[in-house]
């Protein structure tokens, strides 16, 4: 079976972003960009399923600017077989991403799409569920263990009160949580090999998808700063502050 793995190029998780002075967004010039950490987990899971003989081909997909090719090369170096870039410099919101991925699913007929549960830039946590809706496929979100046998996937999910195990019929959507696996690093020979793996480039127009944003961002501002606190010398001083100053105990 084929597995499709969407990967997003985002500001690296170690970077503390700064809001632009004109409040139009966050500063992205000269900032380190990386693959969304949850998407690395998705790529790793797909590779594991291929190594286990469950999957036969892994297609990495990215949507965005030309530089997303780097993100796709990373996925290829980790072990994806080929890549598709839907190239656009427009703002693409989750509903539009889901529509583009649906169009690709219709061409490629994967049995499974593995997505990160959220992207660490917009923190939306929507695309996988939306794609499942548009394809009318079952979904297992926030996965921390995936087992595939004869047309069904058993997925352990992280939920608010603990864990839940669901069984979904394939084709299906899975979104990954942090504890599903530890993504491998691409080795140098694999990075070299990845340069020769096929990459198709297409546009939203060619896929026939209207990507007009539905949400208008009016402004982006810094969150209110916390007032600086104080260091206390010992436990007695702390307890005194909590009782008499903060009055929380």
């Amino acid at each position: 079976m084929k597995i499709l793995v969407p990967v997003k190029r985002v500001v690296d998780y170690n970077v503390k972003v700064r809001v632009k002075a004109d409040q139009s967004g966050v500063e992205l010039a000269n900032i380190k960009m990386s693959m969304n950490p949850f998407d690395e987990i998705s790529v790793e899971e797909a590779i594991k399923l291929k190594e286990a003989g469950v999957a036969t081909e892994i297609i990495a997909v990215s949507i965005g600017v030309t530089q997303c090719q780097e993100t796709l090369r990373t996925a290829l170096a980790m072990g994806a077989d080929r890549a598709i870039l839907v190239e656009t410099s427009a703002e693409i919101q989750p509903l539009a991403v889901a529509k583009l991925l649906k169009a690709i699913c219709e061409k490629e007929s994967p049995q499974m799409v593995i997505l990160g549960k959220q992207a660490i830039d917009d923190d939306s946590n929507q695309t996988g569920q939306m794609l499942a809706a548009l394809l009318n496929w079952p979904q297992a979100t926030f996965a921390s263990k995936v087992t595939v046998t004869a047309g069904v996937a058993e997925v352990m999910r992280e939920i608010d009160g603990g864990m839940e195990t669901v069984e979904i019929k394939l084709p299906a959507i899975i979104t990954t949580d942090l504890r599903l696996n530890t993504p491998r690093y691409a080795t140098l020979p694999n990075i070299m090999k990845a340069k020769k793996k096929p990459m198709d480039v297409m546009t939203p127009e060619a896929l026939g998808v209207d990507v007009t944003p539905r949400l208008k961002t009016l402004k982006v501002v810094e969150p209110p700063k916390r007032k600086g606190g104080v260091m206390v010398a010992d436990v007695a001083a702390l307890v005194d502050k909590l009782k008499n100053e903060a009055k929380v105990i």
Binding site: D121, R214, L215, T217, L218, V221
Partner: peptide, 16 residues
């Protein structure tokens, strides 16, 4: 709504 792990707040208007 917060974005970037709460390091920025975005004001968004829905057209739907």
């Amino acid at each position: 709504r917060p974005i970037y792990a709460g390091n920025a707040f975005a004001t968004v208007q829905s057209t739907d």
